[in-house]
Computed example of a mutant assay.
Amino acid sequence: MINEQEFKKLSGHNAEPCISIFIPTQRAGKEVLEEKNKKHLNSQWTEIKKKLKEEGTDEKTIEKIGKPINDLIENRDFWRHQSDGLAVFASEDFFESYTLPIKFEAYHYISNEFYVKPLVPAMTGDGRFNVLAIQLGDVKFYEASKYSITPVEIEDLTPNRLQDRVGYDYKERALQFRTQDEGGEKTQFHGHGGSERDEKEEAKQFFRAVDQGLKDYLNKEKLPLLVFCQDYLFPIYKDANTYNHLFDKVIAGNPNDTDLMGIHARAMDIFEPYLNETRDKKIEKYKELSSTENTTSALSDIIPAVYQGKVDTLFIENRAEVWGNYHEDEMKVDFSDEPTDGDISLLNLAARKTIEMGGKVYLVEHEFMPQKKSKMNALLRF
């Protein structure tokens, strides 16, 4: 995953030329076996080379930019471990690639800057969440978004610590906790001479160890945490939990009764209404203030405001583009109907600069834009 530091490194890089490539990728199946992901990148690079030659870029420069791209194309192990999208950024002395849970449309951009606008969904933080699938003695952890779910290896965070903190072999001990029937939502506790209360306390110890084991990992990004467990276990987990972003609703059931895609589907049934909650609140705020000086849909006003740190939230129409240039000294925006030599994407410029200045950016479908007549709307700071 790309973090803010990586994003700013990309957005601050300038060279002639800078190459940005985006392709959709598949995680598994026939497309992977037929190496379609690899062929897709190769096709994009072939087209870019042609354009670079037409623009007069010398062969040595093209070869230097292309070497790490070609190395990636030939890296068979790399193509076995893909997510939903691949982003590649290359110049003469720079190369980075990111495998991301974002379904990119195939696109490339040649300029003296990188095209980072498609990375915006990974930077808002609103669209990603974690899923903790937990039973007594069995813990699995995932990072998810609207379009993907990825297992996260946590064995180095939980099993040893669980044994140490709970004070017994929890896997063996957990066999004493039986459900009344397979997949049942109620339980009957069977201890050795202990009361039901003691057994619940032991379950709480188990969950507290999980909570403590995941604590540092969770607090790095503070994503919402959605728990998948049987109903009777969730109140015990909530009591043991110390993480401030635990989601209050549970995915009820036995996680072992479904596969990875089933876990994602069950998670989305509960979490999808909340994925765009922050964005939707900002859109409503824009509409409430639309007749005041705290909003603007004029690109000639938005870009200078971005550079001055005045933009709280920027809404950019998805799959739209506006070409031109910004003259920072004069705070003046020039527009072009079609990209000509030296023109840049003004929407890309606004997106990267807003994030750099601490604002939020959302890529929004046309029908959800607060002010549909413009491809960019800004909610200004008070």
Score class of each variant (00 low, 15 high):
Phe104His: 05
Glu113Ile: 05
Asn112Met: 01
Phe78Ala: 04
Asn112His: 13
Tyr109Phe: 14
Lys117Ser: 10
Ser97Thr: 13
Gln82Thr: 10
Trp79Gln: 05
Ser83Asn: 14
Val120Asn: 03
Leu119Ala: 06
Leu119Gly: 08
Asp77Ser: 15
Val88Asn: 07
Gly85Thr: 01
Arg76Leu: 13
Asp93Phe: 04
Asp77Gly: 10
Trp79Met: 09
Ile102Val: 14
Glu105Gln: 12
Ile102Trp: 05
Tyr107Asp: 10
Ala90Gly: 12
Glu113Cys: 02
Gly85Trp: 02
Gln82Tyr: 05
His81Ala: 11
Phe95His: 10
Val88Pro: 08
Val88Ser: 08
Trp79Gly: 02
Lys103Leu: 07
Ser97Leu: 05
Val120Leu: 09
Ala122Gln: 10
Ala90Lys: 11
Ser97Asp: 15
Asn112Gln: 09
Ser97Arg: 11
Lys103Trp: 00
Val88Tyr: 06
Arg80Asn: 15
Tyr98His: 11
Met123Ala: 07
Arg80His: 12
Val88Cys: 08
Leu100Ser: 02
Glu105Asp: 13
Glu92Lys: 15
Lys117Met: 11
Asp84Arg: 14
Phe114Tyr: 10
Ala87Pro: 06
Glu105His: 09
Asp77Glu: 15
Ile102Gln: 02
Arg76Val: 15
Pro118Ser: 02
Gln82Ser: 13
Asn112Pro: 00
Gln82Gly: 08
Lys117Ile: 10
Tyr109Lys: 06
Ala87Ser: 14
Leu100Asn: 05
Val120Met: 13
Ala122Pro: 03
Glu96Gly: 03
Phe114Lys: 04
Ala106Gln: 13
Phe89Glu: 07
Ala122Arg: 04
Ser83Phe: 11
Ser97Tyr: 12
Ala87Asp: 07
Lys103Arg: 12
Leu119Trp: 08
Ala87His: 08
Asn112Tyr: 10
Tyr107Glu: 13
Trp79Arg: 07
Asp84Phe: 03
Trp79His: 06
Pro101Glu: 04
Tyr107His: 12
Phe89Met: 11
Gly85Lys: 02
Phe89Asp: 08
Ala122Asn: 02
Glu92Gly: 06
Ala122Tyr: 03
Phe114Pro: 03
Ser83Gln: 13
Met123Gln: 04
Ser83Asp: 14
Lys103Asn: 12
Met123Lys: 07
Glu92Arg: 14
His81Glu: 14
Thr124Asn: 14
Ser111Ala: 13
Leu119Met: 09
Phe114Val: 02
His108Ala: 09
His81Arg: 11
Trp79Glu: 08
Glu113Arg: 12
Asp93Val: 00
Leu119Ile: 09
His108Phe: 15
Glu113Tyr: 01
Ala122Cys: 05
His81Trp: 09
Glu96Phe: 10
